[in-house]
Design a protein around this nucleic acid. Structure first.
Lengths: 228, 228
DNA sequence: CCGTAAACTGACCGACAGTCAGTAGATTCA
DNA sequence: TGAATCTACTGACTGTCGGTCAGTTTACGG
């Protein structure tokens, strides 16, 4: 009785096809300007069918952003895989986020546009739950890493791991938004936000380190600086 | 010939009345769910008239947010008025932003929702220009203050004043967004983002100080801590 | 009191999210 | 094989809303 399974598979495939079409339209036009008719046409389906698979336009939007979330997760997971010293990996986490920002700008924008109450209200509970779960996994990568750095005595134990990661995330996120949205403005002021971000990240990270941590990290940094 | 002037005054008054009505509706429903019909009814005008005064729904939205910008400016201007030591005032700038966030949450949200390309496209050039000007004034408060602190030898001269302020702003802004939008999530993790924000702000500020600055600032801080 | 200009109106338009009665095609069963 | 049933899909239709504009009202000047 492989029929039910096949149907299930086909259904899943349809869901993905719809996401692919929606992705194109949302990225090109943004949520408000995109239309379900256009997505339907691109997906070679009728509009009604879209609503059999997704509850609302916003639901579909969130489904698309979750692809971006998966990319971000993979980038970060790779950056934190244990082949380098812990502090390097924390640094790498920030780099991974920045890489996501640079190479998947459209996803970054969608992701950022999403966390808005206006959008949330139109999204199904399941979708919201799946989204939270994906977010959770991403945060956990950072929190675990930070915990490890504390355990190894490289980061001061007085800072909670969650708070430490939140700080690093906050500085990155806010600056990336500025880079993305107001780059003209900052260029005109001769402010290079990208390097400001890099320096801020390291500045905060170093501020949280123990003496032992600084000893371990500093040589690596200066070697890097010499190379450049 | 006071008639022309009176007309001008009345026109300005209409503009303000419309903003007041719009403010109510936008704050209650948010940009997408608010309707021009509802705003018109509340303003006791026809919908057509709204469009004589504002180019689009988004234009009106931005006009409302500028009231919030004015409030923020005043709070910050007050915090930076020269009656306290410079470093205290930089600290006060952060507190002012947080006060704005707490006491004028709706404005904060509108302000944050605005810096989105989807909205920008529908807004008139004049409105956008007026908005930029208001933003500029706010940034300048901080930049000037920081410059003064550097001149007084309290902040390291290697950090550019703009960059220093951007850092402090970034950490505040990103965390406030989290507090506003995901407070349940963080509460459940037992993370007090508000105190994290306060500590982060001071942490970054102190990191930028010279030894002289730290000497001047530290005693004030500890005195405060003893009091609490 | 009339002519003109400015302010205002609201019926109307096009666009779009979302719905649902109906259709086509696959699957099951006699 | 053919009828019955079930499932996926369709697209015309509805209600809503942003924006427009021909026409009306009001205010002013001569």
């Amino acid at each position: 009785m492989g029929i039910i399974e096949r149907k299930e598979r086909e259904k899943e495939q349809r869901r993905e096809e719809i996401i692919s079409a929606a992705e194109k339209v949302f990225m090109e036009k943004g949520l408000p300007a995109a239309t379900m008719d256009e997505i339907a046409e691109l997906a070679e389906l009728s509009k009604g069918t879209l609503y059999l698979y997704y509850k609302s336009k916003e639901d579909l939007y969130v489904a698309v952003t979750m692809r971006g979330g998966e990319i971000l997760y993979k980038l970060m997971a790779e950056a934190t895989s244990p082949q380098k010293p812990v502090l390097e990996r924390i640094k790498g986490l920030g780099d991974a986020y920045f890489e996501f920002f640079q190479k998947h700008r459209q996803y970054f924008r969608m992701y950022r546009y999403m966390d808005n109450p206006q959008v949330h209200k139109q999204v199904s509970e399941e979708m919201l739950g799946a989204c939270k779960a994906k977010d959770q996994r991403i945060w956990n990568l950072g929190v675990n890493l930070m915990q490890q750095a504390i355990d190894e005595g490289l980061i001061q134990s007085r800072v909670a791991p969650v708070e430490a990661i939140v700080m690093l995330w906050a500085i990155s996120d806010a600056m990336m938004r500025q880079i993305d949205g107001n780059s003209d403005y900052w260029k005109q002021l001769n402010v290079d936000l990208e390097s400001t971000l890099k320096r801020s990240y390291e500045f905060i990270l170093e501020g949280m380190m123990t003496k032992k941590g600084k000893h371990k990290f500093q040589p690596l940094k200066t070697a890097e600086e010499i190379a450049s």
